[in-house]
Simulated scan of single mutants.
Amino acid sequence: MLDHTDRKILNLLQQDATLTVAQIADQVGLSQTPCWKRIKRFEREGLIKGRVTLLDRHQLGLGVIVIVTVKTADHSDQWLQTFAEGVSLIPEVVEFFRMSGDIDYLLKIVVRDISDYDRIYRKLTKIAKLSDVSSSFAMQEIKSTTVLPLPS
């Protein structure tokens, strides 16, 4: 169970993982050692899975986000394993979900342009037999965050 101070520490780290323990401790009203111990506990328990640097996709020339929905007639474990392993090898696929409802799988793909997506599409369709692949291109990114809401 997270207390108020735990949530404050985690929110600060989600906003800026480069903050020092001293900076975090100061902002949450703890001394450095208890703050450091909490952070180490979060890491040990797997609550903090890692620390990353977020890049600006536009500056990297990755201007297109494609949301791809996939339907399949084969719902076997072997099919899923083959498809998941194949999709995992495509770095442009940044998110990949097994869904409930009418769609079987949803992928978020980041690419330079439409022809770059076509290259990825061709890879996808070679991984495993698919019933339907539908692609939607994001016109505007309104909200994108890695910050998770922390329960009270």
Rank of each mutant, 00 (worst) to 15 (best):
L12S: 11
L13I: 09
L13H: 04
Q15L: 09
D16Q: 05
T20F: 04
T20K: 10
I24G: 03
A25M: 02
A25Y: 02
A25W: 01
D26E: 15
Q27H: 10
V28K: 06
V28S: 06
G29K: 10
L30C: 05
T33F: 01
C35W: 01
C35Q: 04
C35R: 06
W36K: 14
I39T: 09
I39R: 09
K40S: 14
F42G: 10
F42R: 11
F42K: 13
E43W: 01
E43S: 03
E45A: 05
E45V: 02
E45Q: 12
G46M: 09
G46F: 09
L47M: 14
K49F: 00
K49M: 07
G50S: 03
G50W: 00
G50D: 01
R51N: 01
R51F: 05
V52W: 01
T53R: 10
L55N: 08
L55E: 12
L55Q: 12
L55R: 11
L55F: 14
L55H: 14
D56E: 12
R57P: 12
R57V: 10
Q59L: 15
L60Y: 13
L60A: 12
G61D: 04
G61W: 12
L62I: 00
G63V: 00
G63L: 08
G63H: 14
V64L: 15
V66G: 05
I67C: 10
I67H: 14
I67W: 06
D74T: 07
D74V: 09
H75P: 03
H75V: 04
S76A: 08
Q78F: 13
Q78M: 08
W79K: 03
Q81Y: 11
T82V: 12
F83T: 07
A84R: 10
A84E: 11
G86T: 08
G86I: 06
V87T: 08
L89D: 15
I90A: 09
E92M: 07
E92L: 07
F96Y: 12
F97K: 06
F97R: 07
R98S: 15
M99W: 00
S100M: 11
S100T: 15
D102W: 06
I103T: 15
L106K: 09
L106H: 02
L107T: 03
K108T: 14
V110M: 13
V110H: 07
V110I: 15
D116R: 11
D116E: 15
D116T: 06
Y117K: 01
D118F: 09
R119E: 15
K123M: 11
L124D: 03
K126M: 11
